[in-house]
């Protein structure tokens, strides 16, 4: 218990210094609101956005895009990852290509995706799929192909069918690693949706920031940034707490 208290205190030192610096700069300094608004202004903006329902609406739009894209990428990523992990030929065929494509940052895909899919819903979902797909695929492949020979030999000994060997040996072995991929994938898809909305969108939390920037509303921009960070942490923790349900054999 003591260590938790100590950890919390230590972790809060720098944020508190930053907040104090922010407070000092905006009360004593001469910084225009369009550059750095005061804490109270940001709080005010937050309250206004919540009261008008704007913030909730923006978040709902962005989150529903994430859910659509993320679910698609789970299906693609796990299925393809498992195939590549099980079959050496598939790995030799696809892995070099995947490794090359992965090097292209997701932001760099956005122009081409907009050209192809427009700036509607589809393009956002495609961007999210692309962002979350690779971490899920790579981790699934890893978990499957790292299944120890000793376990595979047990399946061979009892003459399990290919499918049974997959569901009883490969897949359970890969689950912890797949969950790591799912966690990373959720993080990247949240980042990707914000990036996509910043560049081309007419709704969503990223659009709100871009819109606020053009109106010189730095307070709204900061509110959005803080909310994006908070949602990211909440999603990560939620997924993390779901993990233990999928791996009951772990302590």
């Amino acid at each position: 218990m003591k260590t938790i208290v100590r950890k919390t205190i230590v972790a809060l030192i720098i944020p508190i210094i930053l907040i104090l610096a922010w407070f000092y700069a905006t009360t004593r300094g001469n910084i225009p609101d369009g550059i750095l608004p005061s804490i109270s202004k940001v709080w005010q903006a937050f309250l206004e956005m919540v009261e008008s329902g704007q913030l909730q609406g923006d978040l709902l739009v962005s989150l529903s895009r994430v859910v659509k894209g993320y679910l698609c990428s789970i299906v693609f990523g796990v299925v393809l990852g498992a195939l590549i992990g099980m079959s050496r030929t598939m790995k030799e065929l696809l892995f070099p290509l995947i490794t090359v494509i992965r090097q292209i940052p997701i932001i760099a895909w956005i122009p081409l995706i907009i050209l192809w899919a427009g700036i509607g819903e589809e393009s956002k979902v495609v961007i999210i799929v692309m962002a979350a797909f690779f971490p899920i695929l790579v981790n699934t492949e890893n978990g499957i192909s790292q299944t120890p020979e000793s376990y595979r030999e047990v399946a061979k000994l009892y003459k399990l069918s290919q499918w049974k060997t997959f569901t009883k040996v490969y897949l359970p072995h890969a689950i912890p690693q797949i969950l790591v991929g799912l966690k990373l994938g959720l993080g990247t898809s949240w980042m990707a949706v914000v990036a996509a909305e910043l560049i081309a969108a007419t709704s969503g939390i990223g659009y709100r920031m871009s819109d606020a920037r053009s109106l010189m509303r730095a307070d709204v921009v900061i509110v959005c940034m803080l909310v994006i960070g908070l949602i990211g942490i909440v999603m990560d923790k939620l997924l993390g707490s779901l993990f233990s349900l999928f791996t009951p054999w772990k302590k």
Binding site: S150, E153, W249
Partner: peptide, 16 residues
């Protein structure tokens, strides 16, 4: 099926 085998490591599947 009529030939069982026990290995040096127990090789029980940890998830079962």
């Amino acid at each position: 099926p009529r030939c069982g085998m026990v290995f040096q490591e127990h090789r029980l599947l940890p998830w079962l």
